[in-house]
Nucleic acid binder design. Sequence first.
DNA 1: CCCGAGAAAGCAAACGTTTGCCTTTGGCAG
DNA 2: CTGCCAAAGGCAAACGTTTGCTTTCTCGGG
Lengths: 362, 362
Amino acid sequence: MRYIEGRMRMGKRKETTMSETPPARVTLAEVAASAGVSVGTASKALNDRGSMREETRARVRAAAERLGFQIDAVARSLQTGRSYTVGMITTDSIGRFSIPVMLGVEDTLGAGQMSVLLCDARDDRIREQYYLKTLLSRRVDGIIVTGRRTDPRPPLAQRPPVPVVYAFMQSADPEDCSVVPDEADGARRAVTHLLDIGRRRVALVAGPERHHSARTRMTSALDTLQDAGSPGTAGGDVPEPLYGEWSEAWGRQAARILLRRDPDLDAVFCASDQIARGLVDAMREAGKRVPRDVAVVGFDDWDVMTAASRPPLTSVDMDLEGLGRQAAELLLSAIDGHPRSGVHLHPCRLTIRASTAADDLD
Amino acid sequence: MRYIEGRMRMGKRKETTMSETPPARVTLAEVAASAGVSVGTASKALNDRGSMREETRARVRAAAERLGFQIDAVARSLQTGRSYTVGMITTDSIGRFSIPVMLGVEDTLGAGQMSVLLCDARDDRIREQYYLKTLLSRRVDGIIVTGRRTDPRPPLAQRPPVPVVYAFMQSADPEDCSVVPDEADGARRAVTHLLDIGRRRVALVAGPERHHSARTRMTSALDTLQDAGSPGTAGGDVPEPLYGEWSEAWGRQAARILLRRDPDLDAVFCASDQIARGLVDAMREAGKRVPRDVAVVGFDDWDVMTAASRPPLTSVDMDLEGLGRQAAELLLSAIDGHPRSGVHLHPCRLTIRASTAADDLD
DNA sequence: CCCGAGAAAGCAAACGTTTGCCTTTGGCAG
DNA sequence: CTGCCAAAGGCAAACGTTTGCTTTCTCGGG
């Protein structure tokens, strides 16, 4: 009945050309019949279970192939209790950072034959609750929570009966499994690189001090400078980081402040590419040559910014796609019964471009 | 058995704190028992079917509430043949344009109680095929195809037995249902706006000529100028559009070309915000004031570009989220048996900012 | 020749709903 | 009091798999 209805709908949809084969769903029973075995045997044959003559297995496989058998995942889920589906909840609206994470997640999950249910909670705990319920109702095998990076977030309200991995963002409960970028590592790489190419008066510019990321990156940068015994900007001391916003405008403003404070500075580490790009623009307009006079490193490795900047920006890449992949792997492993809780730090990479080009040194 | 296993896994996962309630799945049978009715009646009660005393219905509802009953979507799907799930295939890797579309889709679908299965085909027809198969295997009720906008794409290989809507991109088969931005409309709005604020020498800059979008936008802009009887740049004639790339660098280069060609031009319509931003930068560096000397309109309304530009850019907004919503609505309606095939044009909006500020006119 | 051990294949229950049909019940008219 | 009807609710099949158990073969050894 329902099926008929479905086909009528199809028919109505394309009443002009009725040539294509009616997409009849072929079931395991038909395959079995065609191969001359029972349904159970057919199932076992296709799933490589049970024991049977190789010839039989092949016969079933051939029949399945011939009939274009596509297993009904719904029926299988009902029986096995596994849906081969995971839910991905983005707490904020899907943003610039969530996307590569999602891509990575989708990539390894897809390779593992799992599908991803997308839920955009839009920073709304009510929506989040609602989505959590529908995900569980759909019997997902696991859940990945991602979203804008801020301070650790409270864990999912009603602790779900399936594994959960927090990606990019971090659960406040240390027992939960979270994967976050090792921002301290990234900042360290950036500053080390500046020192490596011979810079000694390194200034630091970040976004809002209340942002966890801004503080983490600055702290690590300072530590690295200190460890290296760098004199910093203010004669022998390490420089005071400048906190502001995550905007190009702030980068431009910061450039003016820095040049006033220490006209001889020879490098700046910025906590975002937008800041770095603004800063580079302002430096150029102030007559400073980048990288010859001032080398600049950004953070995020956001192609739009790094490429459009003049010169292109050296930047710290958080490898968000890799992070997403790692999160997915952790989830798969938890689903398989091997949970590995705790906070996992995902290392950063440094992508070197013209704004710190060594061959442009004096 | 499986359940037991599941719980053991849970136990292992948090062997420290075993306080939380074992998340036992409560079935309709338990609800029915608790309400003192049969399973069938319980089902009907919760779904507002059949006929029964209101008191009975209430009793069942209460029981469901009390026990925290969550329907098993898998079992329901198996029975009804509907999964309340749609697949979303992004042909290219999820990009800047797909995202708002996806958000819109997810939004209205989520409101309609449907979930979204995310598939990233990465410009690979093989992957696309694979995903299509798994989606059908999961019995999705419909499919949305989205991705980078280029020329109309060939329809999905094996025409699926469920409705398909192409969003943002367009199927080559006009019988298919596609929703695309009305770029001609957008260009018209942009140029009309420039004329409205009194500009008469309007230049046009676009991306690669081989790009469908570039051509459409330029053609429409030219038409609008012609209709208005504008003299254009070259004394009485309409201006020749400049084709190049979708980059800021090209925008800067175009600015130089334009100024050489007609130093007195008073407006530029750029086919992307990146081009516009580069152009604005170069104009400023060439001593032209924006918008007083030259008014500039971009395309895409990409906040990163429009906001960071000095001054902020007036731009054409394709309302991709709205487009996604429309696509989802068309899909829902097709699923309900009311397909509306053909190409649907989604109108653009113009967001006016300082780069065309009227109060800055002479 | 018989028995027993595997191997091969079949059987049927189970997964948790929905739904068409049947039975029961109660009310009311004749 | 009987009969009839509608309303209320129960029954059981069906959806398409998976899987433990049983049955049927096939051999080889005693």
